[in-house]
Design a protein around this nucleic acid. Structure first.
Lengths: 327, 327
DNA sequence: CACAGTTTAGAAAGCGGTTTCACGAAGGGG
DNA sequence: CCCCTTCGTGAAACCGCTTTCTAAACTGTG
């Protein structure tokens, strides 16, 4: 790290004051073409790059936004974060990756980044217990598929319709014993709409809904174990509506283990429909969330929020059934 | 955004100078317990949070590191970036997500972040043509599975051994016509070792190696089309060693389309073995890279590099065969 | 040629901390 | 009792850039 070239050096070389050099840099105020050229020449000669930190100190803006999700190592979140990064990048904003890993302390630390003004805003979709810190009002935060506090706007898929379509698909395929998996919700979450729709559709069809809770933060092996238990407790099960694609895939694996094949003996519908999942497991029938749109909406909301504009408390994005061969 | 509480306010309330308050904050120099308590009390009362940017301006460090990879929306990169984020977080460093999307301009912009000192270092694994900017010597950059310049240390899997093991596996399974897919390399890349090993093993076995180039940045549909062509050009193919798991999966799909089943009619071995892939496609036989170790090594190297210590130019991390049912 | 208006540019005061420096107050040994 | 070390603190400079304030120089008009 050699010594940094500073604006003063440029000014001196160009024979003007620091102020003038700054105005050339920012295209501000009255400047003669001659002065502009002189300064530009000096900047080029010294290979000058403005110090972003110094600029940020004055502006009180870093051009950074945090993305706090359970982990990016998941087909849905990876696609969502990639889409968010693209949207933010187009607005000149960089994304700080925050994998909360279901660790409230880690999540809290990323929230601190906002308090410490190292980032200008936060887009959260982590599943942790609610942190009191979120309750501070008017903070530039937007959440995706998660209810954080009534101060934080939410972007969510049309989970109810998704749950309806999924369940109806299984009914139409002739299933009589349909089981649902979902995250055990202690807090209100848009995800619960999937369960509500499942229960409504099943009840209307004269069937009894039954939901198995699968904690999101458990290792895959533990989730698989819980899903195996479904077949032990309810050998009559002939349809599973999983609240996400990885659980759907685990259900298929668990069924295969005990000699039950999909779709002959068991129909399965998942939820999310991320690109990676469709690539690696194209046979899965699932409800696809419109990730690009969700990302765009979230970034728009956050930009408004940062600008201090009022924003809609909830935005719902349509979903679509993607037909595979599992249901 | 209310007015920020500054150190001066704390100092005034505590009845000390700004300097003393700063020293309490940083546990530096001689301080009486009484002064410490007074300052702490004032900080608590005002709910003071130091302004990180101001601190960064003096220190010329942001505690931020950029991760530049083609896209996080990929099983391997998602797992790698998650592992890097964890390692960095443990060292108090935050990760800026940079998806180059095979766009040299975007990659360049993330590199600018380093020049502008908005980030302290860079971990790169993007596949773009080499940018001259990388050639500046002694910049705190580390690359993963990519040769950037001889100034930049590389962390790579033991690709040669991986390619050897994969090819031998196919031979042992009785394959006589084994085809390899790889990224069309114009630049030197550690990935080429996979191809070299494949060619060596095949030649030694008295067979003729044949590699199909599959550009990394093409959409899946285009890749699938190229892979379909393999079966058109070489209907006798009975084994495929793909340079990554997604291509391996596409090969299986392409085979299935024309009524050839895996593993009866075609054996397939992939490369990467990311967790998501193994979850969604557990039947795939593949060479697993040790992602956590690669991440740890890369972050260690970067830390040394930032500290100005000399580092090894190349570090190789062992790989392991994960046996599925496809070969 | 005086005067108002328009350009142009410098000095200096922030932005919010950190650090160097200098100095006064205790404490301890001769 | 004096001198010297160990403490404890405040004033001021500085990190690099932005902006406000102010004044000089230039333009044109009556």
């Amino acid at each position: 790290m050699g010594k940094q070239v500073k604006l003063d050096d440029v000014a001196k070389l160009a024979g003007v004051s620091k102020n003038t050099a700054s105005r050339v840099l920012n295209h501000r105020g009255y400047l003669s073409q001659k002065t502009i050229d002189k300064v530009h020449a000096a900047m080029a000669e010294l290979n000058y790059r403005p110090n972003v930190i110094a600029r940020q100190l004055y502006r009180q803006r870093t051009g950074l936004v945090g993305l706090v999700f359970p982990t990016v190592n998941n087909p849905f979140f990876a696609e969502l974060e990639a889409a968010l990064e693209r949207e933010l990048f187009d607005r000149g904003i960089r994304a700080v990756m925050g994998n909360s890993e279901n660790n409230p302390q880690k999540e809290e630390q990323y929230l601190q980044l906002l308090y410490d003004r190292q980032i200008d805003g936060l887009i959260v979709g982590a599943h942790n217990a609610d942190l009191t810190s979120y309750h501070a009002t008017k903070l530039p935060i937007v959440s995706i598929e998660r209810i954080v506090s009534n101060q934080v706007p939410v972007v969510a898929a049309d989970n109810y319709t998704g749950g309806q379509v999924a369940t109806e698909r299984l009914l139409a395929a002739g299933c009589k014993h349909i089981i649902h998996t979902n995250y055990p919700q202690d807090l209100p979450s848009p995800n619960l709409d999937r369960k509500a729709a499942y229960e409504d559709v099943l009840t209307q069809a004269g069937l009894t809904p039954l939901t198995y809770p699968i904690p999101f933060d458990e290792p895959e092996s533990a989730k698989l174990e819980r899903i195996r238990q479904i077949f032990v407790d309810h050998p009559e099960v002939d349809g599973i509506f999983a609240d996400n694609d990885t659980n759907a895939r685990l259900a298929i694996s668990a069924a295969t283990e005990i000699g039950r094949h999909c779709p002959e003996d068991l129909k399965v519908v998942g939820f999310d429909g991320a690109a990676i999942t469709r690539l690696l497991c194209p046979e899965l029938t699932t409800i696809r969330q419109d990730i690009p749109t969700m990302a765009r909406v979230a970034v728009d909301l956050l930009a408004d929020r940062i600008a201090g504009k009022p924003v809609a408390p909830t935005t719902t994005v349509p979903v679509k059934l993607v037909a595979g061969t599992t249901a």
